[in-house]
């Protein structure tokens, strides 16, 4: 959806139409949830953070002036919420992270293609789980949420040039992790 159309919806929300905000949720729920999930690496917490991010965005909607893209503003809220959640979990001594054995394991008797898709998804998630939340954030924002370097700087507060370097490192690390996992997989079936 074009930014202008989104701004029209935001205008409606500002005028008190709560249900117009449902369109915003439907538009961004996947991206917001994924960003939180990649940082926190826990499904329940990510869902809680995603929900909280939408509620916060709704509460602060009047402060959104449209100087940046709405998605950038929303992702910044999600990013900060996710970091807060990680800190809160650390304070509680709760460090349930996405572990290898927690990924997958729920492949039922669907078709072969679905099984392959699920395995592939599982495989990528294992590799992503092995790289840092920071690198995951950058990869998610750049490749999945299609943010440019300037927007990532706005969201994370990391300088554009640093983002570029870290993104390059994250790509390399993901590649190494995928190769390592593939090697282990091949060795296990030999």
């Amino acid at each position: 959806m074009k930014e202008k159309a989104i701004l029209n919806i935001i205008q409606k929300v500002k005028q008190g139409e709560i249900h117009a905000f449902n369109e915003v949720i439907l538009l961004y729920e996947k991206q917001v949830f994924n960003l939180a999930f990649r940082i926190i690496k826990n499904r329940e917490d990510a869902e809680e953070v995603a929900q909280d991010s939408f509620v916060k965005a709704y509460k602060r909607i009047k402060s959104f002036k449209g100087n940046s893209k709405f998605s950038t503003w929303l992702y910044r809220i999600t990013y900060n919420n996710s970091l807060n959640k990680i800190s809160a979990n650390k304070r509680k001594g709760f460090t349930e992270e996405l572990e290898d054995d927690k990924i997958g394991g729920s492949i039922s008797d669907h078709g072969m293609k679905q099984l392959l898709d699920a395995e592939r998804k599982d495989f990528i998630q294992k590799a992503l789980a092995k790289i840092s939340p920071q690198e995951n954030t950058l990869l998610t924002l750049y490749y999945q949420n299609e943010c440019d370097l300037k927007e990532i700087e706005e969201i994370t507060g990391i300088r554009k040039n640093t983002v570029k370097v870290q993104l390059h490192r994250a790509r390399k690390r993901l590649e190494v992790q995928l190769q390592q996992l593939l090697k282990n997989e091949l060795e296990s079936i030999r």
Binding site: F21, I25, K30, D117, I124
Partner: peptide, 25 residues
């Protein structure tokens, strides 16, 4: 990489938007 990440996209649970809008209401 874009394709790889797209393949691993996770979505929130069913009814996420309804739950969120109810919370806002």
């Amino acid at each position: 990489i874009k394709k790889l990440l797209e393949d691993s996209v996770e979505g929130p649970s069913y009814g996420f938007s309804t739950k969120t809008i109810r919370k806002i209401e």
